[in-house]
Amino acid sequence: MGWSGRALPWVAAAAGLSLCSGLIWGYFFTPDDIRQGSTVKIIYLHVPAALMAINGYLLMFVGALVWLIRRQHVSVLAAKAAAPVGMVMTLIALATGAIWGQPMWGTYWVWDPRLTSFLILFLFYLGYIALWAAIENEDTAADLTSVLALVGAVFAMLSRYAVLFWNQGLHQGTTVTMADGAQQDNISNVFFQPLLLSMAGFGLLFLTLLLIGTRTEVRSRRLKVLQARERME
């Protein structure tokens, strides 16, 4: 609670700064793509959101695992706080993808493997959040949602491959390769630099919300303990 409180304003400021500058750069000061026209500007939202949607689930997985093994309350509360943010990221990725798809593919929605996987990921987030909300006892809820997150991660991976098998897809390959130097071949620097900045922005925003959310959950648990103590006395 100590270090996170001191770090929070800095992380929040960095998040706001990089997100704003990345998006403004992307929106106002990048050229249009030859084939895609101005719709290329949607990638400054779509790609970072998609990245954080997956990282969010990964984070929940790790949080759940640490809780089940080491019984660290903070880690499961972080997983709980990450879920709604991850869900919103998934929603943004889906919505921007659909809007981009309309002029490019001629339809808002195609049952493309990547879009379908994200829709399924969205359902996994929903299930996790619904299970948290349904169980009254906090420790029981922490345990059961963690078990669900672990099993869900396995099945989310499975779904990913199942969906690939099911339909080879329209979605263009991953535009941004993370390997150093490789990006020049894939996507030119004009697009890449603001994209990198907005990815950092989304990541820092996620971290900010994660810190706020986890601190809130910790406080809320403490509040519940105090309330229970009051009832006992």
Binding site: M1, G2, H73, V74, D139, V218, R219, R221, R222, V225, A228, R229, M232, E233
Partner: peptide, 14 residues
């Protein structure tokens, strides 16, 4: 008497 479980949150708050 007055003793509760879940001291973990109090530690986390430190």
């Amino acid at each position: 008497r007055g003793l509760m479980g879940s001291t973990a949150f109090e530690e986390a708050l430190e």
